[in-house]
């Protein structure tokens, strides 16, 4: 089998805009699923509503495209009713952190054996570019036309504090590292949370100084700083510029988990 076999060929090309990072993260996730050797019939992809949540529709396993923000609650039901199934949840920043915030922290607290891939494009893409809980301060969107005045959510910090077993962040530029992080998440029992920043050229990029698809990718490349390096800088008392993206593995631990395959 190859990654191509995990795709619903009859549904491609997908609905994502040209240059959207979601497709890249689908590649990385399928590559990780392929590497861990899961069988198609034992794997279920679950999602909520939004651009990111269209992903399971293109994957040839059983897939559940649910209501806005509730993907984790649906996935909890599936996993507990049949712990033999391997479950990956695709979700977006609005889906997970805004409307689904409560389900997110409780899924982390339960430490239920799911792998959650959050495609964070920092905007509500499907509805046309409204501000989301992860839109950075000053970020322009249709509902923050003078720049977002609210601080953004640190989703990885939230997941760590709420009790997830594995937490990592990468971007859609770092395909190798992201794939490895997702693979580690799949292997790790308990709640695994992998946040991937993705470019949204249509609704975020063009309003925020990234005229071309490549501009935002270049930004991810140049503004990423490893968690370990950031820690060393803090030790030395150096300032980490606020626009830098902390990437890498935030936590890997073995708290008691729910719904682990017996």
């Amino acid at each position: 089998m190859s990654e191509e076999d995990w795709l619903r060929q009859d549904r491609l090309p997908h609905i994502f805009c040209a240059g959207c990072g979601n497709g890249t993260v689908i590649n990385c996730t399928l590559s990780a699923v392929e590497q861990i050797g899961w069988k198609r019939q034992e794997t279920v992809f679950v999602s909520g509503i939004g651009c990111s949540s269209r992903a399971p529709g293109y994957i040839s396993t059983d897939s559940l495209h649910t209501t806005h923000g509730r993907a984790l609650a649906f996935a909890t039901g599936i996993k507990l009713a049949n712990p033999q199934l391997n479950i990956v949840v695709f979700t977006g920043d609005g889906d997970l952190a805004a409307i689904g915030g409560n389900h997110f922290i409780h899924a982390c607290r339960r430490n239920i054996d799911l792998t959650v891939v959050c495609l964070n494009n920092m905007i509500y893409g499907m509805t046309g570019g409204q501000g989301s809980p992860t839109t950075p301060m000053g970020g322009l969107s249709t509902t923050t036309p003078y720049g977002s005045g609210e601080p953004a959510f640190d989703l990885c910090g939230l997941a760590t504090a709420a009790g997830a077993n594995y937490v990592a962040r990468w971007t859609s530029y770092h395909v190798r590292e992201l794939t490895r992080a997702i693979l580690t998440g799949l292997e790790n029992p308990g709640f695994s949370f992998i946040e991937s920043l993705v470019q949204c050229p249509t609704n975020y990029g063009r309003r925020n100084r990234f005229k071309q698809v490549a501009d935002q990718i270049e930004y991810f490349k140049s503004h990423t700083i490893l968690v370990e390096k950031a820690a060393r800088m803090r030790e030395k008392g150096e300032m980490i510029p606020p626009e830098m993206i902390l990437a890498g593995e935030f936590v890997r631990r073995n708290r008691p988990a729910l719904g682990v395959r017996p």
Binding site: L12, G23, N27
Partner: peptide, 13 residues
Amino acid sequence: GNCQMICPDQAIS
């Protein structure tokens, strides 16, 4: 395989 991995449209093989 970088090109294949980053291609959001699964077009490279």
